[in-house]
């Protein structure tokens, strides 16, 4: 299995109208300063060898100002050295808000039944709580609804009808992306639900 290039993966999501946060590669801190334009950004080192970017210390959130950006760039470079080859990427930062929620949407190819799609409580809670539901693709609207209904965290991540509808749409779009592309494994983790909308802030597609 091979990890799909991040920007290519971002474009694939865009094709299926799944929102993911604006991202670009950088080779020096100057590019990051320009991209930031005075607003906070996220900087990450991406490597095939590190599944847990946060645990490996390869993610820096909420960095702002020339000095901080420069310092972060250098320290990430140092930490990423043992995961070579790696690429540095920067993203717009979604403003922290206690109302924001993190979910995971994913998929994999099963040798017996084909593509599967998953939704669950996301971010750092994925493995601790293992609160997720799963279906075989393609899924119907009823399936998507039932998947959300099965989650223990449903009242946290989908409190209102609008939120439920939004999650259902993400699932239906993801199902159709999985079915129509050669994807062995997919992680959108986390997708941040914020300000009545959502953005995938990390994408992992294995072909």
């Amino acid at each position: 299995m091979k990890l799909m290039d991040y920007i290519e993966a971002h474009a694939l999501l865009e094709k299926y109208k799944i929102k993911s946060i604006e991202s670009r590669y950088i080779s020096n801190s100057g590019e990051a300063i320009k991209f930031s334009d005075g607003k906070p950004i996220v900087m990450k080192a991406l490597s095939d060898k590190a599944l847990h970017k946060t645990k490996s210390g390869l993610v820096a959130l909420n960095i702002n100002g020339e000095n901080q950006i420069k310092k972060t760039f250098e320290s990430l470079k140092e930490k990423a050295a043992k995961y070579k080859p790696y690429k540095m990427i920067i993203q717009k930062m979604i403003q922290h808000n206690s109302e924001n929620k993190e979910i995971i949407v994913g998929g994999r190819e099963d040798p017996q039944f084909g593509k599967l799609v998953l939704i669950g409580l996301g971010g750092i809670y994925v493995e601790a709580f293992k609160d997720f539901s799963l279906r075989v693709c393609p899924i119907s609207k009823n399936d998507a609804e039932a998947m959300i209904g099965e989650l223990k965290s449903k009242d946290i991540i989908a409190k209102t009808e609008e939120e439920k509808k939004m999650l259902e749409e993400i699932l239906l779009k993801t199902s159709s992306m999985l079915v129509n592309n050669d994807i062995k494994e997919l992680d959108l983790n986390p997708i941040i639900l914020h300000d009545g909308t959502y953005h995938a802030v990390d994408i992992r597609i294995l072909k």
Binding site: M1, G106, D110, Q112, L116, L118, L134, E185, L206
Partner: peptide, 22 residues
Amino acid sequence: AAHSHTASLAGSYEAYEAVFKQ
């Protein structure tokens, strides 16, 4: 060893459970 969170959560038995529900 799984390459993604999804694969580590959703193994072969979980796939069967999904099939049963659907």
